[in-house]
Structures are given as C-alpha cells and as structure tokens.
C-alpha cells in the first residue's frame, strides 16, 4: 500500500475494518454469532409473505410489491449499520468517557466515530435486503434501464445517509441525556417495519411523516414506484438522494452541537 493511500480516509478506514475483523475472528464463535441475526433477518418478512399468500393482493398491492419496498429499506438500514455502526454505540461511548480517545486523535470525529465499530453480522441485512429487492424487481417486471438503475442506486445511497442521520441524532441526544433512548429504535428498526404496510393504506399524516420527517418512503416507495411504473411522480423518486443528504447534513450539525457539550467521565 502506498503511503498516501494509507493515510487517506479510505486507507485508514480499511485499516480500521481490518483491525475490527481481526478482533472478531479471534473469537472462534464468530460464525455462530452471525446466526441469530441471520434467522431474524430471514424470518422477519415472513408475516407479510404468509398474509399475501392467504388473502391474495390488497388492491394493487402484491407480495412482491410490498417486499420490494421492504427490501430497499432493509438494504439501506443494513448499509447504514455497516458503515456507521460506531455511531449506534455512541451513547455508550459517551457514558463511559471513551469518546475522549477520539478527541485525542487528529482526524475528523465523525469519521472516527463511524469507524469505531464494525460487525460482520450486519452483512446479513445488506445481503438479505439486496436479494429481496432484486427478486422482487424481477417479479414486478421492472425495466432496469440505466436511468432506473441510477435512480435506485442513488436512492439506496440516500437511504443509507438517512438512517445514518437518525443514528447521528440519537448520538447527539446522548450528549445531553446520559443513558440509552429507546425512542430512537422507532426510527431505525421500527421504520423499516413500516415499509411492510402499503403507503396508500396509511392515514395521510402518517404517510407524509414517513415521506418527509423520517424520509422512509422517499428512498424506498417512490423510487420503486418510478422504476416499476406504479403511477407515482418520478420526480419524487429522484429527490431521495438530495433530500436525504440534506437530512444527514442537518443531523451532522446537531451532532457537532452535541460534541460541544461533551462532559468527559471518570478520571
């Protein structure tokens, strides 16, 4: 590896990941440790599948349609957890005062915080979400033109940033309230469960909340609708990345504000 690559953020990130992977492989049970989350990820959408199998479609909504939206959400959440896992641990980091260590190193704090943890088993969600989305796209007979593929990829990047933003907000909150907040699970684990309900069946306010407040549908439903031709505006499909990136930016600002309030712990 060249000196410049090694010192670049990407090179450093690779080294962080290497040290995490090495740490986890030290413990022989690592393969076994991946199992529970794999079982969870695979069984989670079963309820939707069984329901549709029993009762057929809900209006326009078929199993493949619902699972496409769900798969995209799962993929985005999985990627966010993969790349920003450390931020998920932030409340703990602040409580124990371990955040000190990050402050002592001459690198961007957000970068360090994101790279601080890495769990191989988070790959489960990414792989499951990706497979589910691809299978459902096929079942829906989506035309994967370059423009459509680009829209999906940008939407997934946007979705990843949106979830990372939620994790960041939770992290920011931990600077002020020492202790874990269950509230945040509503926006992370809870939100992709929402994807299992057809947006049309949700009350208007809830649908808007998950489009703009926690922009869930923005990076799942609307891009999927545009690609599969479900009579929704294509513009909303393209909006996923810019709006999610803006959301991420705001979360990062909030986080920075939190950092200013950091009170170290212990001696």
């Amino acid at each position: 590896m060249s000196e410049t690559f090694r010192q670049s953020p990407l090179g450093l990130w690779t080294r962080y990941m290497r040290i995490h992977a090495l740490s986890q492989l030290q413990y022989r049970g690592w393969l076994l440790a991946m199992l529970p989350s794999l079982v969870y990820v695979v069984t989670d959408p079963l309820d939707a599948v069984l329901m549709f199998d029993r009762f057929g479609a809900l209006g326009d909504w078929t199993a493949s349609r619902i699972l496409l939206v769900y798969g995209l959400a799962l993929l985005c959440f999985g990627l966010a957890e993969l790349f920003f896992r450390g931020i998920d641990y932030f409340p703990q980091l602040v409580r124990t005062g371990e955040f000190d260590r990050l402050l002592l190193r001459p690198r961007a704090l957000l970068f360090q915080a994101a790279a601080l943890r890495f769990h191989l088993n988070r790959l489960n969600r990414v792989v499951a979400g990706l497979l589910l989305a691809l299978v459902c796209l096929r079942a829906e007979g989506a035309a994967l033109s370059p423009a459509n593929a680009a829209m999906l990829i940008l939407a997934v990047i946007g979705g990843t940033l949106a979830y990372a933003g939620v994790l960041l907000i939770a992290a920011a909150a931990s600077f002020f309230t020492v202790g874990d907040s269950e509230l945040i699970n509503l926006f992370t684990n809870g939100s992709y469960q929402v994807a299992k309900a057809p947006p049309q069946l949700l009350p208007g306010w809830l649908r808007r909340a998950f489009t703009f407040l926690m922009p869930m549908f923005l990076f799942t439903y609307y891009p999927a609708a545009a690609v599969c031709g479900w009579e929704e505006s294509r513009v909303l499909g393209w909006l996923a990345l810019p709006l999610c990136a803006a959301f991420f930016g705001l979360s990062a600002l909030l986080w920075r504000f939190g950092v200013r309030h950091y009170k170290s712990a212990g001696s």
Binding site: Q7, Y16, I19, L22, S23, Q26, P106
Partner: peptide, 15 residues
C-alpha cells in the same frame, strides 16, 4: 483484542 503491533500501525496512519 489484537496484537499491539496492529494498534501501533493504526496509530501510525491516524497520525
């Protein structure tokens, strides 16, 4: 969990 040298190499790149 990793050998000391891994930590040192990470620090080398961080700094």
């Amino acid at each position: 969990d990793t050998p000391v040298l891994d930590s040192f190499e990470l620090l080398r790149d961080i700094y």
